[in-house]
Amino acid sequence: MPLVNAENLVKKYDKLTAVDGVSFHIDEGQIFGFLGPNGAGKSTTISMLSTYLEPTSGDAVIDGFSITRQTAKVKSIIGVVPQEIALYPTLTAIQNLKFYGKMYGMGGEELDQRCHELLDLVELWERRDSRVENFSGGMKRRINMAAGLLHQPRFLLLDEPTVGVDPQSREHIFDTIFKIRDAGTTILYTSHYMEEVELLCDYIAIMDKGKLVAGGTLKQLLSMLGEGGVIEIEVVPPGCPGGLVENMKMQNGVTAVRHEDSQLTISSKNSAHSLPPLLKVLEDSGCDIERLEIYTPNLEKLFIRLTGKELRE
């Protein structure tokens, strides 16, 4: 059952359209990933869902509350972990957590207990009385995340929570996210690292230039590239003799063939089985092979296929 329903969200700044008619839904207990390059509109979408920004048009309903008309209700059930380290550097870890807890109406024993739980969760209880400014980047990120969890939100928005952290801290953060999900929290996760969304997310929405360009489970998305793999062949001379593409499509296991200038991109159910007959077809056509590459499908390749550019551009 969807916890979040976003309908045609639009955010415009003067002539720039940062988010252009985005619609999606997030099921309860799901980790929903937004994948896209910097500037794709992921953070702006999160900002609208968190009520930080008002949509130019469109709306989203979170647990029955509209982000445009019931902001106070929405604020009380969501948790936000912003991309910035939104902490007070001269205060200690526990002082930061207690302050943000009070902002959610918590206090007394309940707040003390919750701070203890969260500092245990992010494995920083021993450092609770250290100033945040003395923490490593990864430790700051973990406290930043804990600050968004104090009031046990039903829906957690994580905006690129692993930017600038070391691999060990990244693992810590992933472990924490799984624990939060297992505790029943629905999560929206944005990243421009495809490995992260592949690992973490139950559902992945790919964004570019303010629009959703694809969405689905990892398996569904990768199947768009062909289940078995992709063979890329660059041929000389450029251009293809008539009938080459059609001949290739007829080979065993081949599901799709694209031709662009001198490059042929062949999707296949099994690259190893498909390759020999494909090479034979090429030889018969009189083309020479300049380059040949076989790869398993991933989101990076899918993104390139969908947008014509790389994720990190």
Partner: peptide
Amino acid sequence: AGTLGRLLVAPV
């Protein structure tokens, strides 16, 4: 630093 933004998305 984003701390003001964090307060804005809290029920304050």
